[in-house]
Design a protein around this nucleic acid. Structure first.
Lengths: 339, 339
DNA sequence: CTGAAAGCGCTTACAG
DNA sequence: CTGAAAGCGCTTACAG
């Protein structure tokens, strides 16, 4: 194998300049005469030289690597977020080192530690919660952390989510306006802030209207669990006439189950999800749902993270971005309703 | 910010040993007395020391980073493959640096170059084709490359796919046995080996049976294009009674379109896909399809790549793994058929 | 603007 | 088994 990676010293020799000169030509804030630049570029070109990013990282202390921790790659929302994050970061000269973590606390712990060992400049934790111990450690090492689609208090932690409480309220208002009176909720995992917030907003708004939900169960963000929940709701003495499901991924499962029971969503029963992943708009589901503004969530995440990295100032923020209710056929639309 | 990363020298000082001793304790093939190990571990523990992976990479020449290039994150097959690849690699002490590339040749070129700058130990290119120039360069630098779900000849290139030609043949045999006589094909992108191979096997088998397809069009692996194709096929003078679609992602689009036209897949017309992504088994689609054995594809990819990395022997292989036809309701099942 | 030199945090022969 | 030293490929004060 011809592992002959060219070094700056070799380029220097060929160009007839010092190794430092070569380094300067390849360092953005350089200072080199046009002549030097020319000679070095020429030699580098001929030799096929490219600076070693790892060596640069060692001395500069900046790896230009962002660690990303993800768990649920089966929910369409995350691959899309991942793609957008990667593109945005690449455009700014960073790259993503990816860690798929089991959602257990221990799993996340191990993975984050591993991640710090790679000297990442920053960490994005997507739908993962952190122990305060871990957050402290990252802060102690000066590694900025942004939680994506999960919100958590803690010194040094930034988080970016959609306005989940508000979203829950919107869904409740919509279903009430639709004349529904037996409204059930298959909640997102109650161990997550998104699951809790969506539920809280939803229940608040119902209560304000003097209503109580006909049932509230935890779907754990899992397809299987959501199916069981739906089945259970249908077998109750008074089955619901509407179901708010904690995310689209589970809502699809619920719709499949309702249809299997001979019901037509949008006619016999209303179903509303949360996320607006692409599949929600496909013919087979036509799911009414709250759109998570993933583009803006990604932009905020990248901005927050890179600002902290590049200025060195830890300035944790909590950002909540409002999302619209998208009307489709899975739920009855009240006359004259505008969202 | 308290960027006080502990170094091996600090641990050495506290433990009362040399810096090299510390290094040895943290190097797998070490040689250190139990006493030294004990003292060092103790001091490391107290200080919260962890070796700097980048520094280790510099001197050892092994970064334990695998570059992954992906393009289509909207097709459910890839997030799943990504997750499995990441898990398998993590289990063996490697991590994935991710690059999302536009599918253009230039885009891939830029991204791969970028990737090599990070001194990755190996590269997995998922559904991406490489210029021979690029392949040569990777080989010259001794970086093993495995193409995942794409097959391409070239010195030093390994590739892992399912048995696509065979898969195409299986679909043809199945549709013929089902009594279909106007069989159309919405092909996978003809710029890709998977698209071409599936089509080739399919056409071969039809021809052998003395049949010609009623139509063959390129769906480009894109939802929008597939929808247009389906519409076009339906408007033909003799619309098809069966459609083989180049992958599941497009097949879902085709089914949506057929239903919009009032047809029932599996009764009025048969639809067969390729991949068997999770969505294919959900109630809304019930898609008959060839299962890509993604687990085995991932295992083979990781084995091939790590063997090359760890032995240093370039031993390019082409691996094709057979996948079964999975029967569901989207296509008419011939009496007594067993796949 | 430019070169010689120190240093980033490690691993690994080399002696002992 | 263990320490002193060289070196991985760079960047960055420091003089000139």
């Amino acid at each position: 194998m011809g592992q002959t990676r060219i070094t700056s010293a070799q380029v220097a020799a060929r160009a007839g300049v010092s190794q430092s000169a070569v380094s300067r030509v390849f360092t953005p804030g350089a200072s080199a005469s046009p002549k030097t630049v020319e000679k070095v570029r020429q030699a580098a070109q001929e030799l096929g030289y490219r600076p070693n990013v790892l060596a640069r990282a060692m001395v500069s202390g900046k790896s230009r690597i962002i660690g990303l921790v993800v768990t649920y790659l089966d929910n369409q929302f995350y691959p899309i977020a991942l793609e957008l994050l990667s593109n945005a970061l690449q455009a700014r000269g960073y790259h993503i080192l990816i860690f798929t973590a089991p959602n257990s606390t221990d799993g996340v712990e191990a993975v984050m530690q591993d991640l710090m060992d790679y000297q990442v400049d920053g960490i994005i934790a997507a739908s993962v919660s952190m122990t305060s111990n871990l957050a402290d450690r990252a802060r102690a090492m000066g590694i900025p952390v942004v939680l994506f689609n999960r919100s958590q208090n803690g010194p040094g932690l930034s988080n970016v989510t959609s306005a989940n409480v508000l979203g829950g309220r919107k869904v409740a208002a919509f279903l009430l306006a639709g004349g529904h009176r037996r409204i059930a909720h298959i909640a997102g995992w109650q161990g997550s802030s998104t699951g809790r917030d969506r539920q809280a907003g939803f229940l608040q708004a119902l209560e304000k209207a003097g209503m109580t939900p006909s049932a509230v169960v935890d779907g754990m963000y899992k397809r299987d669990v959501a199916i069981d929940c739906a089945r259970e709701l249908l077998q109750a003495d008074t089955p619901p006439d509407a179901i708010f499901v904690g995310n689209d991924h589970m809502a699809f499962a619920v719709i499949d189950e309702l249809r299997a029971a001979g019901m037509v969503p949008g006619q016999d029963i209303s179903v509303v999800g949360y996320d607006d992943v692409p599949l929600a708009s496909w013919g087979a589901y036509q799911l009414t749902t709250i759109r998570q503004p993933v583009n803006r969530m990604v932009d905020s995440t990248v901005d927050l993270l890179l600002r902290q990295i590049e200025t060195g100032v830890a300035d944790p923020k909590t950002i909540k971005i409002e999302g619209d209710l998208i009307l489709r056929q899975s739920a009855h639309i009240p006359k004259g309703w505008r969202s």
